[in-house]
Amino acid sequence: MFTGLVSDVGTIHEISGDDRLRRLAIRSHYDPASIALGASIACSGPCLTAVAVEPAEGGAIFAVDAAAETLARTTVGSWRVGTRINLERSLRIGDELGGHLVTGHVDGLAEIVARESVTGGEGDLGASERFTLRAPGPLAKFIAEKGSVCLDGTSLTVNGVAGDLFSVLLIPHTLLVTTWGERRQGDRLNLEVDLIARYAARLSEARTATGPG
């Protein structure tokens, strides 16, 4: 389980394997002693398992394996050496839940259709950026204004919804410490809808199917 609060930005260091199973070595700033084999790490959304770890200058290089379904249904299949990805360690009991509950199970891919700067008035601390994205049709019903959504492993609040389009606002700090500063129109991002919204919809469907009683 994760919170969607990015704790590091890693870089793809090496890739091996094929479309059935691919191993990705990721350079990070994490202390290698803090990464246990079998640990879960959210890598720009998908929860992947650390299968190897070694010290590296400034941190560690850890390896994860991505199976065929992950490669096909997320952006992992498009990653190349040098790709930067958002990282988050799994939540521990007692940790502060600063974002929202995130499972690391990607539901689909959202596409950025627009990016625009939003500046303030006097005393402005820098431009925020509003991103408008298109959700896959079946997932649009789970995205609500003022609700939570996880995009590329980042917990964000939905600012507005219009059909299958929704918008999020990124403050300068988030743009700086995640990969969002690099995102442009046409980019596709790993999307995980809010866990509570998904279960609420499922319960509603079950009630409708069984009828009143």
Rank of each mutant, 00 (worst) to 15 (best):
V193S: 06
I26C: 00
R23G: 08
A114Y: 08
D18V: 00
L203G: 07
V168R: 00
F142Q: 07
K141T: 15
S117C: 08
K146F: 12
S128R: 08
T74C: 03
S204Y: 10
A114H: 14
R184H: 05
A60D: 00
P138S: 06
E122H: 11
T132F: 02
E129N: 03
N86Q: 08
I35Y: 05
H100Y: 06
L170F: 15
H13S: 03
R80K: 14
R27C: 08
D107V: 14
T83K: 07
E88F: 02
V149K: 02
F166M: 07
D95H: 09
I85A: 01
T75M: 14
I171Y: 04
I143M: 06
I196Q: 15
R22Y: 04
L176H: 14
G17S: 10
L203F: 14
R84V: 10
L151N: 10
T70G: 03
P32L: 03
F166S: 05
W180I: 10
T208E: 15
R80P: 09
P55Y: 14
C47H: 03
Y30P: 12
G4K: 01
G104K: 00
H29K: 04
L165G: 01
R198L: 13
A200Y: 11
R73N: 01
G163A: 04
G10Q: 07
V168T: 09
F142C: 03
F131N: 11
V106G: 07
H100E: 06
L151W: 13
T70Y: 11
D164I: 00
G98H: 00
R80E: 14
P46D: 05
E122V: 14
C47P: 11
T119Q: 06
I112L: 13
P32A: 05
A110N: 13
I143Y: 14
L191A: 08
R20M: 02
G186R: 05
E192S: 15
